[in-house]
Design a protein around this nucleic acid. Structure first.
Length: 599
DNA sequence: ATCTAAAGCGCG
DNA sequence: AAAGCGCGCTTTAGAT
């Protein structure tokens, strides 16, 4: 195998060979084109690799010059590299970048990217542990999902289109930063899935038993739930009340003289009736059982690791989404089941009030930045006499970012307008653009989607001479909805960019921490042994969880302080990278423990 | 029999 | 209280 020349501005585009049956191994052939981006793109050479050669090749190149690897789609390439013990430092993810570039209003010459529709595809999760019997299902499912092309020529062509689009951007620097951060996020997601969240199955089971009773056989209801259900039926004097069907339950409630329009808990809480308390308890139990009960444990936790499927860029604002496993909805109640391996620690950190801080930074609102500096931003509003209580501050700030107009929130938002004119004018303008059908962009240039045809039709209908008041109301409501969406888009999206920059930087800092020796395995191989994290992460601090504004790092105990420092430094560095010397800080709540706190 | 919509609740 | 943004998941009920 010839090794291509190393260079500091080098990109390696990875793709499948056109003849992927080469050597009798279908789908395993790989090709690399090594590209030098100094000046015009020059194809230095391409290299055909055999079935098992890619990981070694990547490892070798990584140790020499750290190129930026160009992937069609990180989930397609990362799992094999990680399971072979290979990590990369930087990449450019064509699928994620395509989604940003095709919409970005900063790009002046994006037609070619937008026209390459095959790159506008669904994210595909990497297959979990390849279990023989499930393989058919996985293959079957994946074949129905629209995937990006993984062959080398398609990847090179798309890479060219993206490079041209980027070069035409109004602010290529910011957009380049966004693409790098987004791509790094793709790597983090793949790595977190490979590592898994250390999960204490016994603790989870203990929590379930405490709330629901011991695990029932088959799909019977747990005994504590049955008992609570009986209390409800007795209180309703309706021995056959069905608590699982909203419609039937509503009938039973009405029959018992409880006048509610729905069975939602905030409405039930309003009523005074002996059935309400046990009913709310039952609903809580039912939720826990169906969402995160024993079935969830069986399906998603294996060998002491919870492996959810993250979807970077899955939300239009740039936030991550999840697909399967409910990674973004793990109830606080179950957080204690998240537990470090023996000799390891969990280092958890979250940013207090990330979104308003991102807004203050973006708007250059010095007064708002000052209100939050080094302290709880909501308390800052109280200290500065803008509102009376922390609760009011929270309602006002959320109301400002979400565009609420009624109730307490509507009453309090005007005070912010007086105190923080720059921040408020930014979100107010974003709302106005959206309500008129326009698009808005985040700090780094992620652009909101154009409202759909249905939206425009509603607006047109309201402008016709024969428009009814119903038409006008519908149009006004739709315009308001879109305005609130774009208002929030700039804030949520910019906060997501800060979080990506934080993650990207943290990932590299953690990779530079020292590795530890593997614990000697005595007797039975422990099911929660650190080796469950795979060859790359079993000896080194690594990210295991990310949720919009919080991270959890799993670290050898002796490096936990260093990991904590890395988290803080990465946060400071993210603020600088995005906002330069803007007077906004992003303070962290950080804890080192063996177990995640219940909160 | 299988798909979709809506309700409801978990997370930020 | 709900409101005002963004999601995923489970369940039931209704449509195909």
């Amino acid at each position: 195998m010839t090794t291509p020349p190393a260079g500091s501005h080098e990109w390696c585009v990875i793709g499948r060979t056109p003849d992927d049956s080469l050597g009798g191994v279908r789908g395993m052939g790989s090709m690399l084109a090594v590209v030098d981006l100094d000046g015009d793109r020059v194809r230095i050479g391409s290299h055909r690799l055999g079935a098992d050669e890619l990981p070694d090749f990547v490892r070798e190149r990584e140790s020499q010059g750290r190129p930026r690897w160009v992937f069609s789609d990180a989930p397609n390439w990362c799992p094999a590299l990680l399971s072979a013990g290979v990590r990369i430092e930087r990449c450019h993810d064509l699928r994620l970048s395509h989604a940003i570039l095709m919409r970005s209003e900063s790009v002046r010459d994006g037609g070619a990217v937008a026209a390459a529709e095959e790159w506008d595809a669904d994210p595909v999760s990497a297959p979990a542990a390849p279990e023989a019997e499930a393989l058919f299902d996985v293959t079957e499912r994946r074949s129905r999902i629209k995937q990006v092309p993984h062959d080398i020529d398609s990847a090179l062509a798309e890479f060219d289109r993206q490079s041209a689009a980027l070069a035409s951007a109004a602010d290529p620097g910011r957009l380049r930063l966004l693409l790098a951060a987004e791509s790094a996020g793709g790597l983090v997601a793949a790595e977190m899935q490979a590592a898994g969240v250390p999960w204490d199955v016994e603790e989870h089971d203990r929590i379930l038993a405490e709330e629901l009773g011991p695990r029932p056989a088959g799909d019977a209801k747990p005994e504590k739930m049955l008992a609570v259900a009986e209390q409800v039926r007795t209180a309703l004097d309706d021995p056959r009340a069905n608590l699982d069907s909203h419609v039937k339950l509503l009938h039973s409630l009405h029959a018992a003289g409880i006048n509610v329009a729905s069975t939602s808990k905030w409405e039930l809480q309003e009523s005074e009736h002996p059935a309400i308390a046990p009913l709310l308890e039952y609903k809580k139990q039912a939720r826990l059982l169906s969402a995160n009960g024993w079935a969830w444990l069986d399906e998603w936790v294996d060998e002491g690791r919870y492996r959810p499927v993250y979807v970077p860029g899955g939300v239009v604002t740039g936030r991550w989404a999840a697909s399967g496993g409910g990674a973004l909805q793990i109830p606080r109640q179950l957080r204690p089941a998240l537990r470090a391996d023996p000799g390891w620690r969990l280092v958890s950190a979250d940013v207090a009030q990330l979104e308003p801080r991102a807004l203050a930074a973006m708007a250059g609102d010095r007064a708002m930045a000052e209100a939050g500096r080094g302290r709880d931003l909501y308390s800052g509003l109280v200290d500065e006499g803008i509102v009376a209580t922390r609760q009011e501050a929270k309602i006002a700030v959320l109301g400002a970012m979400y565009g609420s107009t009624t109730g307490d929130s509507g009453r309090l938002v005007p005070r912010l307008r007086a105190s923080f004119p720059a921040a408020m004018s930014l979100v107010d303008s974003a709302a106005e653009v959206g309500s008129n059908g326009g698009v808005v962009s985040t700090w780094l240039g992620r652009t909101s989607p154009v409202p759909g045809e249905g939206w425009s039709r509603v607006q047109r209908a309201a402008n016709r001479f024969d428009a009814t008041s119903a038409d006008e109301n519908r149009a006004r409501r739709a315009a308001g909805d879109q305005g609130r969406f774009t208002r929030n888009f700039v804030v949520q999206g910019t906060a997501a960019e800060w979080a990506l920059a934080w993650l990207a930087d943290l990932r590299l800092r953690l990779a530079r921490l020292p590795a530890v020796d593997l614990p000697t395995v005595e007797g039975e191989p422990g099911t929660t042994s650190a080796t469950a994290s795979g060859p790359v992460f079993s000896r080194q601090a690594h990210l295991v969880f990310f949720l919009h504004d919080e991270v959890i790092v799993h670290s050898p105990a002796q490096h936990a302080e260093a990991a904590a420092a890395a988290i803080r430094e990465a946060a400071a560095s993210a603020g600088k990278l995005l906002f330069g010397n803007a007077p906004v800080d992003f303070p962290l709540e950080l804890t080192i423990s063996e177990r995640a706190e219940k909160d």
